[in-house]
């Protein structure tokens, strides 16, 4: 017999897990949809953000939440510095820019992971927080873990804020123009390098910020990134390639599928079900769950 409380708790878990995925997927969808880069380093930005939380939090009174703005600013700057290199290997007379970007960011990911392993060693590290501890019990529904609720809210707000920037500001219009046709945008006077750097910087900043929250929820470890890279790919496929708002839906679907499968079908089947969903979707609905993604 299905317990109502376990069902509602599983739905809460799934929704909040989806919120965690949204924090990672937002930036990844942004660079794919706007800059048309498949960034293999997305999970490593998560890992670096989590490590930043683990290293810096003890210096600011043991509160990981205080690291969030710092991580955003620091990795925004990192992204601004890295983007010209990606631009360099994906433009000019280079063939297959998507592949070039993939290869470059794969190397970047390996470098990031290896560097952290070499500098900090293999240990898992706690990202402490005193502000978000335990969960809020709501009778009849279940427990809402504080840190996961805040993470999900931040993920959704990040997406909304970025959508606002993209569709309601001059800078966002410029970025969309670049995505539409780089040459025409340049002819219209758009500073391509500047806006691409901003977009990549925002992506790096958002993803590392997500990493701080993920560190608060789980912990920080040098090998954690690959999992989030895989989930980021899942996210944009489910959302529909290039369709940013679909990220919320895809995060929720992934989170709920994972949570409900684990409880009602068995934890061993979780990844079987998730991979199955992706493959079936690619076969029957390549434009994503909402049908608004790009297809060749």
């Amino acid at each position: 017999m299905v317990s109502t409380e376990l069902l509602s708790q599983s739905i809460i878990n799934g929704l909040l897990l989806g919120g965690i995925y949204v924090t990672v997927g937002v930036g990844f969808a942004l660079v794919f949809g706007v800059l048309e880069i498949i960034d293999f380093a997305v999970g490593e930005y998560v890992m670096l953000g989590a490590f930043t939380g683990a290293i810096v939090a003890p210096m600011v009174g043991g509160e990981g939440l205080l690291v969030v703005p710092l991580a955003f600013v620091a990795f925004f700057l990192v992204g601004v510095v890295i983007q010209p290199f990606i631009h360099h290997v994906t433009t000019g007379d280079r063939p297959m820019p998507l592949l070039m970007g993939l290869v470059f960011t794969f190397g970047l990911a390996t470098f990031m992971r290896g560097s952290i392993l070499t500098i900090f060693g293999p240990n898992t590290r706690n990202v402490p927080t005193n502000a978000l501890s335990g969960g809020i019990e709501i009778g009849g529904l279940g427990t809402f873990p504080e840190v996961r609720v805040v993470t999900a809210v931040v993920g959704v707000l990040s997406l909304v804020a970025f959508m606002y920037y993209l569709y309601r500001t001059t800078g966002g219009t410029a970025i969309r123009a670049i995505a539409e046709d780089r040459d025409i945008a340049r002819l219209m006077g758009v500073n391509i390098n500047r806006y691409q750097s901003i977009a990549y910087g925002v992506y790096a900043g958002l993803t590392a910020t997500g990493g701080v929250f993920i560190g608060l929820i789980y912990s920080a470890g040098p090998g954690m990134g690959l999992q989030y890279t895989a989930f980021a790919f899942f996210m944009i496929v489910l959302a529909g390639l290039g369709y940013l708002p679909g990220i919320i839906i895809s995060g929720i679907v992934l989170g709920l599928a994972q949570s409900l499968t684990a409880v009602y079908l068995g934890g061993e089947l979780v990844f079987f079900v998730l991979f199955g969903m992706i493959y079936v979707l690619l076969l029957v609905r390549p434009e994503g769950l909402l049908g608004k993604g790009e297809v060749a």
Binding site: Q9, S10, L16, R148, S259, A262, G267
Partner: peptide
């Protein structure tokens, strides 16, 4: 007796156990 992949999110196991 609840087996899961190593990378799973353990809230599902904890929720089941708590119940």
């Amino acid at each position: 007796y609840d087996l899961n992949p190593s990378d799973t999110d353990w809230t599902s196991v904890v929720s089941s156990a708590k119940s």
